[in-house]
Write a protein that binds this DNA or RNA. Sequence first.
DNA 1: CATATAGGCAACCAAATGGTTGCGTGTCAA
DNA 2: TTGACACGCAACCATTTGGTTGCCTATATG
Lengths: 107, 107
Amino acid sequence: MDDDAVFKALADASRRQLLDRLYERNGQTLGALCADLDMTRQAVAKHLVILEEANLVSTARQGREKLHFINPVPINGIAERWINKFEQRQLGMLSALKKALEDEGDA
Amino acid sequence: MDDDAVFKALADASRRQLLDRLYERNGQTLGALCADLDMTRQAVAKHLVILEEANLVSTARQGREKLHFINPVPINGIAERWINKFEQRQLGMLSALKKALEDEGDA
DNA sequence: CATATAGGCAACCAAATGGTTGCGTGTCAA
DNA sequence: TTGACACGCAACCATTTGGTTGCCTATATG
C-alpha cells in the first residue's frame, strides 16, 4: 500500500465528503455523487481519480455508468500500521509531556 | 479537534517523518530534528508549526531551546471517530464490491 | 438514425504548498 | 561584554493543487 497516496487523498475535505457519501450509499455513479456538491462534475471526477489511485475507491463499469465503491482496506492499513504505533505509548507520551511542562514551569 | 488540520498535517511525508523521529525520541529541539534531514532549519520549523497547529506536537520552551513533544490524542481522535466508521462495515463493503464486480462480469 | 445522457480528456488559472535565503532576537558562556 | 548558538520572521520562488471551461466519446432510447 502507498501510505503517501492514501494520506494525501484523505487530506482534502471534499474527498473525505465523497467517502462519507459512499459510506452512506455505496456504488454511486459520478452523476449521483455530484448532486448538491457545489462543484463541477469534472472537479468531482478528478477527486474520484485521486481516491481510486489511493485505492480508497474501486469502480465497476456498467454500461455507460461507472459505479464507485468505497474500499476500507487502506484506511485499515493506516490505522493498524501507523496510528496504533502512537496509541501504544500514548500514556507514556502524555506523562512525558506533562513532566516537561512542569519542569518548564519551574524555570 | 480540527479534523482538517490534522489530516493536512499528516498528508506530508516530511511531517510524518518528524513525528516518527519524535516517536523514537521525544522532546527534541528544532536543531536536533534538523540533523540529517536534507532540509533547511527554517523548512523544518515551518513543518513543526503546522504540526503544532494541528495539535500533533506540543512544545515547551527551556532557555533558548524549544523542546517538541508528540501528542497522540488527535491521531486517536481520527482513528476512533473517522476511521473506525469504515472498519465497522468493512466486510459488508467488500462483499458489495465483489457482487458488483460479478454483475459487471456478466454484462 | 437522431438525440439525450454519462462520462473522459485537455488546456488553463488562481491559490496553496514546500522550500529557499537573509536577517533579527533572545539566551548562554568565556 | 562579546561572541556563539538556538530560534523566529519575512520576502521570495517553483511546483502542486483544486477548480474551471470547452470539447470529445460512448451508451442508451425515441
